[in-house]
């Protein structure tokens, strides 16, 4: 579990470093770069979430409320970028994005916003430091991820998870 935490941290760091690159720079770039960028950012989110999940399942005593606040802030930060990560022209090729992202864009933006809300709430709950409340809210963050994957991401083969 300690190893998964380290991996999660490493992945998250990569995602944050990449988030530092201005998304608009990609607007003129080839679509594949944006697709790779957003897939890496999502993998970073997965790293954070996976570390949080390990904690929520009750196995990791290493985690403090500050760790959780940091992860939650990173997830909330990425969520703000999601609207810009799917410019026109990035809907084909090596992407698992569904056309619904562009067809029902308002719904998509609402789903992305929910990730921001739930992870911001996690940071707030972590400030209080109530363990049960933090664990419950981690589940809500995960549900926010799934709430966007289901309508807007193509099903992935189980092996690639």
């Amino acid at each position: 579990m300690r190893r998964s935490l380290v991996i999660g941290l490493a992945m998250g760091t990569v995602a944050v470093a990449m988030a530092g690159i201005v998304a608009e720079a990609f607007a003129q770039a080839r679509p594949l770069d944006m697709i790779r960028y957003r897939q890496s950012a999502m993998k970073g989110n997965g790293g954070y979430l996976n570390a949080l999940n390990a904690y929520a399942k009750g196995e990791v005593t290493l985690v403090t409320k500050d760790t959780i606040k940091a992860y939650a802030a990173a997830l909330a930060g990425t969520s703000l970028e999601i609207p810009g990560m799917f410019p026109a022209g990035t809907d084909t090729g090596r992407t698992n994005a569904k056309p619904e992202i562009w067809q029902k864009n308002a719904d998509f933006l609402a789903a992305a916003k929910r990730l921001g809300e739930e992870s911001t709430k996690l940071a707030e709950v972590a400030t209080g430091g109530n363990e049960a409340a933090m664990k419950e809210q981690i589940g809500k963050v995960a549900q926010a991820c799934g709430g966007c994957h289901q309508p807007f991401r193509k099903p992935l083969p189980p092996a690639s998870r």
């Binding site: 997965g46 996976n50 399942k57 981690i138 995960a142 991820c145 709430g147 994957h149 289901q150 998870r161």
Partner: peptide
């Protein structure tokens, strides 16, 4: 514990959160 957690949140041990029709089942 992993499976019960997935049934609650959709999060699988690899770090992904299931989409597809299973997300509806969880919701």
């Amino acid at each position: 514990i992993d499976l019960a957690y997935m049934l609650k949140t959709g999060a699988v041990p690899g770090g992904d959160v299931v989409g597809s029709l299973m997300a509806e089942v969880i919701r």
